[in-house]
Design a protein around this nucleic acid. Structure first.
Lengths: 235, 235
DNA sequence: AATCCTGTTTAACTTATTTTAACCCTGTTT
DNA sequence: AAACAGGGTTAAAATAAGTTAAACAGGATT
């Protein structure tokens, strides 16, 4: 847990008061310190003061919509995980959210278990990323040991040095191990931008990382078409 | 270590009273003598009086920000370890902090375990550096024995004398053994400045140190591109 | 005054890193 | 199956960073 105050602090920005209160109560029951705001402007004012560990933002809100709010939040603290709530399951919306820096999205109405699961996964990821950057974190990837701080990978009788971007991307893949790392998330976090050129650049780095890992036949760095990459370790 | 309490004395400069108090309580629980100040001016006044072993400074504060405070503190006592707290994870900030003389930084929100870990590591390093300069400390580097005070290195049937800067740099590398000594930290501590020319000058000294150590094939003085140097001893 | 020691500066050179471009392949959609 | 967007791989270009030798300067030593 990344806070010193005990409970994990969650912000909900949702203009539908009914729905918002139900959500707030549900999450409060699961030991979260939940704060509900009715529009983007209000939510952003509060965000600047309180230290939130996670934000759940409705895409459609008056005054400042979820996308605009997310952009402002990411500008203040680019590490806070953000989950978008969207009524439509339209793919366009999800992609736009990811480009802005969303870490996940969920469509209304939703399964409350799934939301809890996503919250846990996101908080865990956010924590692992913080550790990977600050501490001496060693990721074990099949027969390799990868140190994200020293930017070294050793295994199969050799040790190699990784460049900063190579190391950052591999660390992200490790955080999402066996799960999909969405392209947009990686581009946002490492390149701070998501356009045609940074995307092609990322492809080049994927190839490089595949080369570093090629000695272990149990490791695969799979592409999920139109979505992202998945680092899979068989056992 | 404080003479009266026997405890290590830590200064926190943080304008967010809420966050500051929580942090203070948390560190107090871990046997530190913690003093909290709300702005840079107040913190600096107190620094001049009490002997602090470590300072944790928020970058963004009213009246005097963390960077300005750090500069004043370093001018008074260049050996006190400083940790910067920064909300943004922006690399620019970290680099600026290092250039001013930070020994480490941590981005908010952070894992409290990581902070404790960093405090311990820094206090340990700071102590070793003081000893290396004032006392007779012998560092063992592979097959060599290096005395930082006498500035001698012996091994493989010969003894050589090091110049003051050579010895200072090697001592720093020893303190950070197997870990990265960031360029900025070395430049700040030894050259008291960080610009293009002192950086090139440091590179020259790295070459000189490599020559002193070349007889032992288990010793490597590795560059970590864009970051610093790592003295690695294989065994 | 000549010499040595130390550290600084310069500059030519080498290597690392990232971006861009080219060309080809693979799923997806109509 | 044709058209197209997304992805894979490699090489080249562009930039950034690090290495090294050698010339230089200033103070200390002989």
């Amino acid at each position: 847990m990344s806070i010193l105050t005990g409970k994990t602090k969650i912000m909900i920005a949702e203009d539908d008061t009914n729905f918002g209160l139900v959500l707030k109560d549900y999450l409060s029951l699961h030991e979260y310190d939940v704060h509900l705001y009715r529009d983007g402007r209000q939510a952003f004012d509060k965000f600047e003061k309180g230290k939130f560990n996670l934000c759940i933002l409705d895409v459609m809100m008056p005054i400042m919509d979820g996308f605009a709010l997310a952009e402002n939040i990411k500008a203040k603290d680019s590490n806070v995980p953000i989950i978008f709530l969207t009524a439509k399951s339209m793919k366009v919306d999800m992609i736009r959210g990811f480009k802005i820096g969303a870490d996940d999205y969920i469509t209304k109405p939703f399964d409350s278990e799934i939301l809890l699961f996503k919250i846990k996964a996101l908080l865990n990821r956010s924590e692992t990323i913080v550790k990977a950057v600050n501490e001496q974190v060693e990721f074990v990837i099949g027969g390799f040991k990868f140190n994200s701080r020293l930017r070294t990978i050793q295994g199969f009788g050799k040790e190699e040095k990784l460049s900063p971007k190579e190391a950052a991307l591999l660390a992200l893949l490790c955080v999402y191990l066996n799960d999909i790392l969405p392209r947009e998330v990686a581009l946002r976090k490492i390149w701070n931008d998501d356009n045609y050129f940074t995307a092609r650049s990322m492809d080049v780095f994927i190839t490089k990382i595949r080369k570093y890992l090629k000695d272990d036949p149990n490791i695969e760095l799979l592409n999920v078409h139109g979505n992202g990459y998945r680092l899979v370790v068989k056992d």
